[in-house]
Design a protein around this nucleic acid. Structure first.
Length: 991
DNA sequence: TAGGGTTTT
């Protein structure tokens, strides 16, 4: 081991013994300190000195790759050993570590990934989680993971480093509220920063209350922007008056940076250098920020300068106090990227950026009071993200459920439910939220679950070759550069990669272009120039290729087959669609700017910079939906709605319109409507209804085809029966008794009795009939006597009327024979408005055809000593019916009272109401009431009229009133006989 | 008519 020395000018060096002691005595310690304390470089050395790093590695994580590699280089240098020998780093695509290493720098993502193959993290005896206050998804996951790992690895030491203000939170997480783990605070080496508050002076315009659903009116937005730019210019002026030194201005985005640059250029002398800085800038443009010149530099930066990049030589900071923040909306399942006020911790981090070389001044473009009211910390990423990927990873690690995992700040149940829902949507978990075999495959891919799903689909669709290119493109930043000053030239250069139907295909074209560019390159320099001339970022192209080759390795390991034949548009895009079912859209208007209707009722527009913005078709899918000033779809492609049906079958919700018989296909059809997350994929599609509801289809077939005659068949019974019925009808006309003889319901019952239950359409019927009629040629022949026999048995429409008149209103009666069913017996359809008019007394009588049996059972329920005067009971009941008919008294008065009077008259016996045991009667001897609305839809049903009247009485009265006033609905469905005058007359009569 | 910044089995 080389000699370990500590630079004495670093604050952490002076505390190394204290830190060493704490680490010896505790399993976990927190080291807090601001930038410049030296903790990042010195902590691993303190650990080495304690003899750690011998039984296992000292693992040291950084949030960014660049920090991991540069820290490794720095420590190796301080130890005087070559990089990789004792101190190395591992980041994605790059591993410099040799076997005998002690210290391993890595990104937190790498350590997290290693839990998959080394769940106990046995490779390490010490782990340092640096910059824990950044609270990325990876860090929060790791902190939870370590918390539950510690008891199983008592030998493992863990150091968490953090900014001072939130050290306590970590101390409590790893300890308990009563006994937190020790926090060692190390001072930073920051110079003093003076903070000045210079709130933007707003014009006195009425600013509408912030409603996230309504875009800010243009005039207001423009004015606010101008105010912000004025504020920036004034602040820069003020700072420049203080003295020399570079200025760093924090703004929320590229657009604001461009506007501010313009304002400053107009205002400042030409020797001031104005430099934009944001992540999507080309390397060359970013490099300008790190080259110092004699001119004063004003760097206009996004959040990238807050943590990821350190701009050297900054003396002054202007903080607009704003940032674009990504949030996931569980409601709409889309990402939001909207401008928000930054938290106090972020504002302080920004201010700290001017205290690195000398005392600095920071101007905040808002009130001090505003600052004090802001939240202390930025919401951790885990509270702002879709949890699908996190849950998938936890499932595949066999960790405890996400609900009970020891997160520092646990996500809400709503967020967890949403994550499961997305995993279900792609088929990664089943209905019990257990990982499926497909989910296990997904978990092996270093991709968003939705992109991973595309790869698995591509395997089935024989388009894996193309999909690997597209999927890796979707996982990295867009390689296309679009510099502010050369937007048109960039668009022009990118045109050759465009496709009229799909932006996904652009990735394939760029890929091919780059492959050829590499193949034909004369030098690296020439390749670089070539990329630049075509406005492509070589850095991002390289990253893309790296991800692609990583995926390729996995694909080969799995033995998945790459297609050699080029995939078709449909093959590739249906595979893409498997991951993008939540991002489909339907253009429901022709006017420009109408936008697309999406899942869950969202409405979105194609990103204005898209090549397809004006030419995409009716149906599209988008790689992503992000809400900025509006909800925009990026990377879109035309699709066919049939693909949605195929790929999204498991998510389609189907509903059916009124089924009806169709003669030509000889089957019952219904209009089918399918929706996916509420978006109508198709409607009015006639489909064979039989398999969906065989019972109803059979009923309709018998009623409309066989009885109604709307049927083409050569089966002889059909013509015979039709003719027979016609003959009898002719007779009926002659006898002027239309209602008595041929009753469709009787013929229906006849067919129902003879035709098997599984016959639901013409084809099935013909097949069955052919067989069945061979043994019994007359099987379905109606005979005149049979029809007459029904009549003889009393089954006529007189006895079983189709409707009942209640104070002038015709109400439909239906019959059902199914003992035990709620519908058993006779059901009266009562329009809501007439509910109060229905009389319970009248209903007791049921219909003439059912009364005899009811009277028989009523008599039977009497005590023996009374009953014996009426024997034989059926005879008595029959004669009672005759007397009622003779008197034309059916339905008049209280049935029991009438019966009591009859008994007294016939036998002299005195029977009381209480002597009848009503409860012994089966339910079908009581009228069933179905309350319906004006469209004929059932509101409720039951045999207890009083209860229904109590429930709907008030509504019924109100509707009755409305009808009387002449504003009534048409009343269809309520037997068609309703009319307003009838209702009016009725009310007059009732009054 | 216009998108902050990271990371990976």
């Amino acid at each position: 081991m080389p000699e370990i020395t500590f630079p004495e000018d670093l604050p952490v060096s002076g505390r190394r013994e204290e830190i060493a002691k704490a680490l010896t005595e505790n399993q976990v310690i927190i080291v807090s300190g601001e930038t410049g304390s030296g903790k990042t470089t010195q902590l691993p050395k303190i650990c080495l000195q304690l003899g750690r790093g011998e039984k296992g590695l000292i693992g040291h994580t950084q949030p960014r790759r660049i920090a991991a590699s540069s820290t490794a280089k720095r420590i190796a240098h301080e130890l005087g050993t070559p990089l990789g020998e004792h101190v190395g780093y591992k980041v994605r695509f790059n591993d410099t570590l040799s076997k005998g290493a002690w210290v391993k720098l890595m990104t937190d993502g790498i350590l997290l990934a290693e839990t998959q193959t080394d769940p106990l993290l046995k490779a390490y005896d010490t782990i340092v989680i640096d910059e824990a206050h950044e609270r990325s998804l990876n860090i929060d996951f790791l902190l939870g993971y370590l918390k539950q790992l510690l008891p199983r690895r008592p030998d493992l030491k863990v150091i968490i480093t953090s900014a001072t203000i939130d050290a306590d939170r970590f101390a409590r997480h790893f300890g308990t509220n009563e006994k937190p783990v020790p926090v060692i605070e190390v001072s930073g080496r920051l110079y003093k920063v003076e903070v000045r508050y210079r709130p933007i002076e707003r014009d006195a315009v009425a600013i509408p209350t912030a409603d996230p659903n309504k875009p800010v009116p243009k005039a207001v937005a423009a004015r606010e922007k101008r105010d912000l730019m004025d504020g920036v210019v004034d602040a820069v002026d003020e700072l420049c008056r203080i003295g020399s030194g570079d200025v760093l201005v924090f703004l929320p985005g590229e657009r604001e940076i461009r506007d501010a640059a313009e304002s400053l250029r107009k205002h400042h002398p030409p020797h001031v250098e104005i430099l934009p800085l944001f992540a999507r800038l080309s390397v060359e443009e970013q490099d300008r920020v790190f080259r110092t010149t004699n001119a004063r530099r004003i760097v206009l930066a996004t959040n990238v300068a807050e943590t990821s990049l350190t701009v050297p030589g900054i003396r002054y900071v202007v903080d607009a106090g704003l940032a674009r923040v990504k949030r996931y909306s569980y409601r709409n399942k889309v990402e939001q990227l909207q401008i928000e006020a930054v938290a106090q911790s972020a504002a302080n981090q920004r201010a700290g950026r001017c205290g690195r070389v000398a005392d600095g001044v920071c101007i905040r473009l808002y009130e001090e009071d505003d600052f004090n009211k802001r939240p202390k910390f930025t919401d951790p990423e885990i509270l702002r993200s879709s949890l699908a990927a996190v849950i998938l990873r936890m499932k595949s690690l066999h960790l405890t459920d996400v609900e009970s995992f020891p997160f520092i700040e646990p996500p809400t149940p709503r967020a967890i439910a949403d994550g499961y829902q997305l995993l279900q949507e792609v088929g990664a978990v089943d209905d019990n939220n257990e990982l499926t075999p497909l989910g296990r495959k997904l978990a092996r891919l270093p991709l968003d679950p939705r992109v991973g799903r595309m790869i698995l689909a591509a395997l089935d669709n024989a388009c894996l070759t193309e999909m690997l290119i597209v999927a890796s493109a979707l996982s990295v930043q867009d390689p296309r550069d679009r510099p502010m000053e050369h937007q048109q030239a960039a668009d022009e250069a990118h045109k050759k990669f465009a496709d009229d139907k799909s932006e996904f295909l652009s990735f394939l074209k760029i890929w091919t272009w780059f492959e050829q560019a590499i193949e034909h390159k004369k030098s690296n320099r020439q390749l670089m120039d070539n990329c630049r001339a075509n406005f492509l970022s070589q850095l991002r192209l390289r990253e893309w290729r790296d991800v692609h080759s990583q995926l390729l390795t996995i694909v080969r390991e799995q033995g998945w087959r790459l297609n050699e034949a080029p995939a078709t548009y449909e093959q590739l895009h249906t595979a893409l669609l498997t991951g993008l079912l939540g991002n489909i859209g339907f253009k429901d208007g022709e006017e420009p700017g109408a936008g697309y209707l999406g899942a869950r009722g969202i409405r979105f527009h194609i990103w204005p910079g898209s090549y397809l913005v004006k030419k995409a078709g009716k149906w599209i899918m988008a790689a992503e939906l992000v809400e900025t000033t509006r909800l925009y779809a990026r990377c879109v492609a035309q699709i066919q709605p049939e693909w949605i049906e195929k790929v999204g079958a498991h998510l389609l919700k189907k509903s059916y319109g009124e089924p009806r018989w169709e003669k030509r296909p000889a089957q019952v059809t219904a209009a089918e409507k399918a929706t996916l997350h509420g978006l109508i994929i198709y409607s009015q599609r006639r489909i064979h209804y039989g398999p969906l509801n065989p019972r109803e289809a059979r009923e309709i077939f018998i009623r409309d085809a066989l009885v109604g005659g709307d049927y083409d068949t050569r089966a002889p019974f059909f013509a015979h029966n039709r003719k027979l019925v016609k003959d009898i009808e002719t007779l009926e006309h002659k006898s002027r008794r239309l209602d008595v003889l041929v009753d469709d319901q009787l013929i229906e019952a006849f067919y129902d009795q003879h035709i098997p239950q599984d016959i639901i359409n013409g084809a099935g019927f013909e097949k069955w009939y052919k067989e069945a009629s061979r043994d019994n040629p007359k099987l379905l022949y109606l005979v005149r006597e049979e029809l007459m026999r029904h009549e003889a048995a009393g089954v006529t429409t007189d006895m079983f009327p189709k409707a009942m008149s209640v104070t002038g209103i015709e109400m439909q009666l239906t019959y059902h024979f199914e003992p035990g069913s709620v519908r058993d017996g006779v059901t009266l359809a009562v329009p809501l408005f007439a509910l109060n008019q229905v009389s319970a007394e009248r209903a007791e009588w049921l219909v003439p055809g059912m009364l005899k049996e009811k009277v028989h059972l009523l008599l039977k329920s009497l005590p023996q000593k009374l009953r014996r005067h009426m024997v034989p009971l059926p005879d008595y009941a029959g004669k009672f019916m005759d007397r009622i008919h003779a008197k034309m008294a059916f339905g008049r008065g209280n049935l029991i009272d009438v019966l009591i009077a009859d008994i007294r008259e016939q036998t002299g016996i005195h029977v009381l109401t209480a002597d009848f045991k009503m409860e012994t009667l089966p339910a079908h001897h009581f009228m069933n009431f179905k309350v319906i609305d004006e469209h004929g839809r059932q509101l409720d049903m039951g045999r207890n009229l009083a209860a229904l009247q109590a429930e709907f009485g008030r509504q019924a009265r109100a509707q009755f009133q409305k009808m009387a006033e002449g504003t009534a609905p048409t009343g269809e469905g309520a037997s068609g006989a309703l009319s307003v005058p009838a209702a009016v007359a009725l009310q007059a009569g009732a009054a």
